[in-house]
Simulated assay, not measured.
Amino acid sequence: MMLILALTCAVAVGNIYFPQAIGPLLATGLDVSPDAAALVVTATQVGYTAGIVLLVPLGDRIPHRTFLVVLLALTGLALLAAGCAPALAPLVCASAAVGLTTVAAQIVGPLAVSLVAPEHRGAVIGTLLSGSTGGMLLARTFGSTLGEWLGWRAPYLVAAVLALLLATVLALTVPTTTPASRQSYPALLAEPLRLLRTERELRRSCLYQATAFAGFSAVWTCLAFLLTGPGYRLGAQSVGLLALVGGVTMLCTPFAGRLVDRRGPDPVNLICLLGVLVSAAVLAVGARGGMVGLVAVTVGTLLLDIAMQSGMVANQARVYAVRPDARSRLNTAYMTCAYLGGSAGSWIGAQVWGRAGWWGVCALTASLAALALVRHLLTPYAAVTRGRER
């Protein structure tokens, strides 16, 4: 069951990323400029953000099996529409629909942790995140290779078949679950904000992930500038090859999950935040250029990826334990904060690059990790203070 759910995460997340690899093929096939073709990727990402906000809270209202089957079926139909689009405008609309509906991974998490004992939740979250990471990494290779062979429509059509097949498999295998809430849809949409106000552990997890993801996004946004600049003079494809190194993370997140089960999320968060700090120091050596710099960049990005993803395992384990009856709404608040942090990190990273170069980007990543680390180290003191006030 968990392998099927991990595969579901991989396929759902992959639908967000494979369009990034076929932009040039889209531009040529539809006879539009590269900038216009990039609207397809933007529409997919905007749709995904909207799906997290508008659809994921319904995971507490609709039985998981029904919701997952409907989402995957709609994703499959949207992918079919994209693959058959005659022009750019219909393709952009279909891509937005793909992004909106391919949020199955955010529904699978609450479902999976409800199927296992509390002492195994970390391992389950790690396994699912491993599937999501695999989907993210392999989707670009899948999209570019298939697109080169058969044209830009082929990745959409194959992805549609995979989504519809998974919908059928999940309809036959996912156990029946009882909805955790009977609230109206407007009340469900408002609940994530209320939970952010009232649940301290949720806010703490959101801070940790938003800062780590912001640093991660800043580094990857500026990495292409570094590798194609005078220090290295490599092609843009070098960034894609470097991203494949992150496949090691698929092996690390299940281990992080088991560690969360044994020790709790706080020690794992501490290790991960320290890991982000160390990765920033290693990445800074990349400013030297040459072979030494390239090794430092490779090791640093790998360490950063492992620290960020393993931290997510710890944070989600903490979030899901806050209120078992509101896991989808908690996940909505958490993922929204994480993506906002990543978006802000990309923008700030680009601004810092223009003013301070690679050193500045590494300093930004270290500063964000230090902010979260200070908050983490003050947590025991804050707990003692609240106990005295009571």
Rank of each mutant, 00 (worst) to 15 (best):
L259H: 12
G257D: 02
P192L: 07
D266F: 14
A210K: 04
T176V: 15
C206R: 01
S205M: 02
A214F: 10
C222N: 13
R203D: 00
A256G: 08
P175S: 08
G247W: 00
Q209C: 09
V276C: 14
C222G: 12
A187V: 05
Q209T: 14
L273E: 01
I271S: 13
N269M: 11
R204T: 11
P254S: 04
A187K: 10
L277Y: 08
T168S: 15
P155N: 04
A224I: 14
V169W: 11
G264D: 02
R204D: 09
G215M: 09
L196Y: 03
L170F: 08
L273F: 03
L234W: 01
T221F: 12
T173G: 01
S184T: 13
R182I: 11
S205W: 01
A218R: 05
A210Y: 06
A256E: 01
Y156E: 15
L162T: 11
G229T: 08
Y185N: 04
P186W: 07
L226R: 04
Q209G: 09
S184Y: 03
L270I: 08
P155A: 09
E191Y: 12
P179Y: 12
L170G: 06
R258M: 09
A214M: 09
L202S: 08
A160C: 02
F216E: 09
T176H: 15
Q183W: 14
L166G: 04
L164I: 10
L165D: 13
L277R: 06
G247S: 01
L270H: 10
L188H: 09
A160R: 07
G240I: 03
L164Y: 07
L195H: 07
G264W: 03
R262T: 08
E201Y: 12
Y208I: 14
W152F: 04
L193P: 05
D261W: 06
A163Y: 00
G215T: 04
L259I: 11
R182A: 15
C206H: 01
L242R: 00
A160W: 03
T173C: 06
G246A: 02
W220Y: 13
Q209D: 07
G235M: 07
L164P: 02
L234Q: 00
F225R: 02
R203G: 05
T176P: 07
P186G: 08
R200M: 12
V245F: 06
G229K: 02
E191K: 14
P267E: 07
E191A: 15
D261G: 03
L207A: 10
P265W: 05
A154T: 06
G246P: 00
T249P: 01
F216I: 12
L157F: 03
V174E: 00
G231N: 14
T198F: 05
L274Q: 03
S181L: 13
R204Y: 14
P186K: 09
T221C: 10
A190N: 00
L227E: 02
R263I: 12
R263W: 15
A214H: 06
A154Y: 07
F216C: 10
L234S: 00
G264P: 00
S217Q: 11
P192H: 04
P254D: 00
L166A: 07
L244I: 10
L164K: 09
S181V: 11
V260A: 14
R200G: 12
A187G: 09
V245N: 02
